[in-house]
Design a protein around this nucleic acid. Structure first.
Lengths: 222, 222
DNA sequence: AATAGTCTTGTGATTAAGTCACAGACCTCC
DNA sequence: GGAGGTCTGTGACTTAATCACAAGACTATT
């Protein structure tokens, strides 16, 4: 996957006149991340903006106890808007980001990006759109953490994963630990709840694998 | 407090040439909110952007159980960036906002504001600055909720309130209930912790009032 | 195929938080 | 000085997080 393949996924690029597209191409640097590679650490200065073309990046906060919570994922066609907002406000990253899978992306230097936001309405709209969405997502996350019980949150997570963005699947390859870091909980808590779901016949758990048995039962927790 | 007094608190206005200032003045509508007045409800469509000149607005999420959690406060010289981000992205409010005290503000119609963000670098920078800050605040909030215990969070809250933005005070007028909605906890939990702090000699609690007795003791929880 | 070593899951005990159901205490306003 | 509202206190119970291990499952190696 090369630079323009990646950029092609972004409307402000795809619909831009040729001259503008060439400008983007020239400024873009392609990067490739392997699973586990950090895209940035908390507190890093912000020098680039990234557009993801492929794969997935997990943006998260880590507590001193070793627990973590995922804030959101950046997937194909999305910007890590955190980088954008930091670039535009000149602040350092308030969270960390690691690649979850093999990821292709392009990055732009901060000044170039700032310039485009100033001069191109399409880029600006794209940025505002994503910023507002992430902001709303974060608020929803706060709400979720504060008011919902773990069983409900876990069931929600599982349903979403089984749904797989419209292409339903019945088996997840994920460990209890991974789920815990996703939800900001502890592994033991997740294990016990999964066991409970299994007891009710909703799922079937095995090492590193969860199979959906009865979606309706699972949905009763929502 | 009239329109230009309020606008004067914003750098993009204060440093603007006369012609631009007059343009702002013409587009601005002054609004006044009494304590308890809603500025907007969750789900409301977003038609205006507000700049606060005086007083304070609380932006919060409410759970079905009746519990609430404050996301942030908008005080003098700040924008309710949520309105701005919603205006710019064309979405509805993901939270609710209510005046905590007598509040003076000016509002601009969405299209006018969008236009300014497009045409004036100063306004745009201001918006990005605030958006990025709020975003970082929200992430910090998620971290706080997820990893910190209530006693620490409560102590933090109290210290901040006693500090009073540089002008320290020793008495707070606040109910346990209000603190609970601020922290997203339950009143009973706050009451018990306050009692514990009192037992240790850090504070003295009375109906609707908390007096600081020994800051060092309180700070041991941080 | 036995072994060692890591990764993953299970379990019990303890503490922290949230929930529920009341009981008083305090305050304000007739 | 009652009446009614607003605050706070308390006990019992449930849910989560934490801690300390035990045990199972998979991998690589010999």
């Amino acid at each position: 996957m090369d630079k323009s393949d990646i950029l092609q996924k972004y409307c402000f690029y795809a619909h831009a006149p040729l001259a503008a597209r060439q400008k983007f191409d020239r400024a873009a640097t392609q990067v490739e991340l392997n699973p586990g590679d950090f895209y940035f650490h908390e507190g890093d200065a912000c020098t680039h903006v990234a557009l993801v073309g492929n794969g997935s990046i997990r943006v998260y906060k880590a507590g001193e106890s070793g627990r973590e919570i995922t804030l959101y994922h950046v997937r194909a066609g999305e910007t890590c808007i955190l980088t954008a907002s930091c670039v535009l406000a000149g602040m350092s990253y308030p969270a960390a980001a690691v690649a979850e899978s093999q990821t292709d992306a392009v990055i732009f230097p901060a000044p170039v990006f700032r310039d485009w936001v100033a001069s191109m309405a399409t880029v600006r709209d794209f940025v505002f759109q994503t910023l507002a969405t992430r902001m709303a997502d974060l608020m929803a996350l706060v709400e979720e953490i504060t008011f919902n019980k773990m069983d409900k949150r876990l069931a929600e997570y599982l349903c979403q994963r089984f749904e797989n963005e419209g292409r339903p699947i019945t088996v997840l390859h994920v460990t209890h630990e991974q789920i815990a870091t996703e939800l900001g909980s502890a592994r033991e808590v997740v294990s016990r709840l999964l066991k409970e779901f299994e007891r009710l016949g909703a799922i079937e758990v095995a090492r590193g694998r969860i199979r959906l048995r009865n979606e309706a039962t699972l949905r009763q927790f929502l």
